[in-house]
Simulated assay, not measured.
Amino acid sequence: MSTTEEAISTITANTLQAKEFPPLRYAVDGYIAEGLTLLAGKPKIGKSWMALDFAMAVATGGLALGSVECRRGPVLYCALEDNHRRLQRRMSQLYGNVEHWPPELHFATQVRRLGNGLIDDLREWIERHRPKLVIIDTFAGVRPQGRREGYEADYSALAPLQELAGDLCVSILVIHHLRKMPSDDPFDMISGSTGVTGSVDNPFVLHRGKQGVTLYGRGREIEEMEQAVEFVGGMWKVLGDAAEVRRSEERNAILEVLEEVDEPMGPKEIANALGKSENNIKQLLFKMHKDGEIKKRGRGRYCAADET
């Protein structure tokens, strides 16, 4: 009696339990893992500078974002909004004092689009060079032309890149844009439908707010993060957890105000001096007094801890 192959292929729980997988590898530890990563931000915020920082750090085995160690390996950077002259100028600005730019950092300024040969081209290049990181800057440069709108179209546009990254165990980073419309959730500002974020393993958003620039990250292979970052001299640096950094900045601002006056101040006076909410200042003053950063003088009046 002949048997027919089942249409749905399965794996039992006990077989799954016995399987062994190699550890997940990162191109940039804690940030860019094997799979498809998306970095979105508004124009001119510095997405390409951050991508170049990642590329150079991996190609040299150096530090990304000023402090994140990277495992050395080949990198393919598809800089689709640049030419060789601009790339040389940007590299010279950042790394002109380096005697030799890394031979393992490869640039391409023109590639075919998704749905028109790009996946085959990338597969061939990856199998030949075995890169740790592939960067596509930007998604608009490889997006299928004449595409439909909506979740399904956005998801299917990026899905082949996600599948390729998984098949070849490589990190692929795609640079993308944000919409102009603000949102309480930074990831809702990513241009396109939710199919864009749904098709990638780890989305990131680089966003400038009233308190500075924050790098937001979440995904399947990374810890959810909100990192305060700073752009100085063409280089991005991580300052630390955004909430901690902003809180520290606000505390320092309060201390500066108290140190500049001879008399203790109340929450309303401090709030007016800083242009902040009185209620928020009250809460922060309470915590600062509890931590010994400031002293209380009378009812609701504060001075710096080193004042007598």
Rank of each mutant, 00 (worst) to 15 (best):
A165V: 08
R147G: 14
L168D: 02
H177W: 06
F139I: 14
E152G: 09
V142E: 08
G146W: 11
V170K: 02
D167S: 11
T138R: 04
E163Q: 15
G141C: 09
L168S: 00
R147S: 12
D167R: 12
T138Y: 11
G166L: 01
R148I: 01
S183K: 04
V142I: 14
L164M: 13
L161Y: 02
Q145E: 14
D184E: 15
G166W: 04
A165D: 00
L173A: 13
A140P: 06
R143S: 14
A159M: 04
T138D: 10
Y155C: 07
Y155T: 08
R148L: 09
M181R: 10
Q162E: 13
S183H: 10
L161C: 08
A140W: 10
C169W: 03
V142P: 06
I175S: 02
P160L: 05
P144T: 12
V170Q: 00
E152F: 08
I175Q: 00
H176C: 14
L178M: 07
L164W: 10
A165K: 03
S171A: 15
R143G: 09
Y151P: 06
G141T: 12
S171H: 01
Q162P: 08
R147A: 14
T138P: 06
H176V: 09
G141W: 00
I172N: 03
L158N: 01
G166K: 07
L161H: 07
D167F: 00
H176Y: 12
R179P: 00
I175H: 02
S183Q: 02
A165M: 02
L161P: 08
R148F: 08
R143W: 10
L164T: 10
E149S: 11
A140G: 12
D167E: 15
G166H: 03
P182R: 04
Q145N: 13
V170S: 01
P160A: 07
S171F: 00
G150W: 11
F139L: 15
Y151E: 05
R179V: 03
S156V: 10
L161K: 02
G141P: 05
I175D: 04
E152T: 13
Y151H: 14
E149N: 09
G146L: 11
S183L: 03
G146Q: 07
Q145F: 06
K180S: 05
V174I: 11
L168Q: 01
L178P: 02
L178D: 03
P144F: 12
R148K: 12
H177C: 00
A165P: 04
G150N: 12
G150Q: 08
E163M: 15
P144M: 15
L168C: 01
H176P: 12
R147L: 08
Y151I: 09
H176N: 13
D154R: 06
L161Q: 06
R179M: 06
L158Y: 10
H176W: 10
P182E: 06
S183R: 03
Q145S: 13
G146E: 13
G150I: 06
Y155W: 11
Q162G: 15
S171K: 00
E149Q: 09
H176S: 10
I172F: 07
V142C: 13
V142N: 07
G150R: 03
P144C: 15
D184G: 15
M181L: 06
Y151F: 15
F139Q: 13
H177Q: 10
E163G: 03
K180T: 00
E152H: 12
E163F: 10
A140Y: 04
A153M: 04
